[in-house]
């Protein structure tokens, strides 16, 4: 339980860092850290297969997408960054306060789980569920990936006639 608590606090701090970081690149890295901590939490919640996906896709692929997108856009100059971050600090320092207040409120209210929790006893294999029970989701994913690949062809191609 203590380890879980430490992990959860780490996850929240990393997310907070991702929101409040000055440069976009640092924010993307903080997001990767959040995702890595989520991976460990998933592993501790007895879901190793999903944890592997989270690690490879969210920590790896999505960070790569973010970093390449950020590096393709022109970073701000140093003076602009400082001006922005002062402004930003004023806008963002409420966030940790709000989060702590919300957590304290939830803790004090002791929101109860007021329904009987079902206990599913059949220990089934993930692969079996994915390919037999949830086959429809797999087909849905195929269509989604097809649509996404058309989107990438359309959106990432440098436009021949420059609109600006």
């Amino acid at each position: 339980m203590t380890i879980d608590l430490i992990l959860l606090v780490m996850m929240t701090i990393a997310a907070l860092w991702a929101v409040m970081a000055r440069s976009l690149l640092k924010a993307a890295i903080a997001l990767a850290v959040t995702s890595a901590v989520v991976t460990i939490i998933m592993f501790r919640l007895a879901s190793p297969l999903a944890a592997v996906f989270e690690l490879s896709v969210c920590t790896g692929l999505i960070t790569a997408i973010f970093v390449s997108a950020i590096s393709l856009t022109r970073p701000l100059t140093h003076a602009q960054t400082i001006a922005m971050s002062k402004n930003k600090f004023r806008r963002y320092w409420y966030l940790p306060v709000i989060m702590v207040i919300a957590a304290a409120a939830l803790f004090l209210l002791k929101i109860k789980v007021d329904v009987p929790l079902p206990q599913v006893l059949a220990i089934d294999d993930v692969r079996n569920i994915m390919w037999n029970l949830r086959q429809l989701d797999m087909y849905g994913q195929i269509v989604l990936i097809l649509a996404g690949s058309f989107g990438i062809v359309i959106l990432f191609r440098e436009s021949d006639k420059d609109g600006s």
Binding site: A50, F53, Q119, V126, D137, L144, I145, G148
Partner: peptide, 27 residues
């Protein structure tokens, strides 16, 4: 609820969808 296998298969689908949406939005 002791339903880990089911939740995992759902989360894997969710992660795939998430990547596609993020890539499109970045584009």
């Amino acid at each position: 609820t002791g339903n880990m296998a089911f939740a995992q298969s759902i989360v894997i689908t969710l992660i795939i969808i998430e990547v596609v949406v993020i890539a499109i939005t970045a584009g």
